[in-house]
Simulated assay, not measured.
Amino acid sequence: MLQYEGFVLAYESGEDAVLSVDATVEVLAQHQRLKLAFDSPYIKGLPITAITLSRHPNGDFSEETIRPTYENYYTLMFKELHRSLSGDAEVKTTVLDSREEIGMLSDILKLLAEGFEKR
């Protein structure tokens, strides 16, 4: 879990011997949650699912599931890469963005290592 100003980000990922994959990213705010579920990369065409859970000012609770496409994530990534390289779209992330992400992953791995050392 990563604490940011105004929200917490929870990342969870796993894989077992029967190739069942559970990969999610969840953003937790005071009155709303957003969960992105990345289905198995082993089955072509499974969508990324976005689930929003909200508590409204009047006390009502709502849940919405969104599947924007049935193309799998990897196909969408390569299509976007092609668009960027061919000049039809701007590159969304920079080398500096990558550096920041590597730093964040390094911090996560350090925390995990500390947790295992305490056992």
Rank of each mutant, 00 (worst) to 15 (best):
A50V: 07
A23H: 12
R119E: 09
T94Q: 08
M104S: 15
K92F: 01
A89K: 10
V25M: 11
D22H: 15
E101F: 11
L34A: 07
Y70V: 06
R33L: 09
A89G: 04
G87R: 02
E101T: 10
H82A: 11
D60L: 11
Y42Q: 03
L28M: 08
L109M: 14
I43G: 04
T65N: 08
D16G: 06
D22A: 10
T94N: 04
R67Y: 00
V27E: 00
L36P: 08
G103S: 13
G6I: 02
R83H: 06
L85P: 04
I51N: 01
Q3P: 06
G45A: 01
L111I: 13
L36A: 11
F78C: 02
Y73T: 05
E80I: 06
F7S: 07
L109A: 15
P57G: 04
I108G: 03
L34P: 00
T75G: 03
A23K: 03
R67M: 15
I48C: 05
T69A: 08
A17E: 14
Y70A: 09
Y73G: 03
I43D: 09
E15S: 09
E117S: 13
H56V: 01
L105I: 11
L76S: 06
L85S: 08
L9P: 05
V18Y: 13
M1I: 06
Q32F: 08
S98M: 11
E101N: 12
T94F: 01
D60I: 00
S40L: 00
L34C: 13
I51Q: 10
A37C: 09
M104W: 14
A50H: 01
E90N: 13
L46A: 03
L96F: 08
A50E: 01
Y70F: 10
E101L: 10
P41V: 05
I48S: 02
L96D: 15
Y4G: 11
A113V: 02
R55S: 13
K92W: 05
S86N: 14
T94R: 06
V8M: 13
L111T: 14
A10K: 14
E100R: 10
A37F: 04
S20L: 03
A113M: 05
L2C: 01
E80L: 03
S84R: 10
L53V: 08
E114Q: 13
D16N: 15
L34D: 00
V8Y: 09
T75N: 05
L36G: 06
D22E: 12
G115H: 07
S98W: 07
D97E: 01
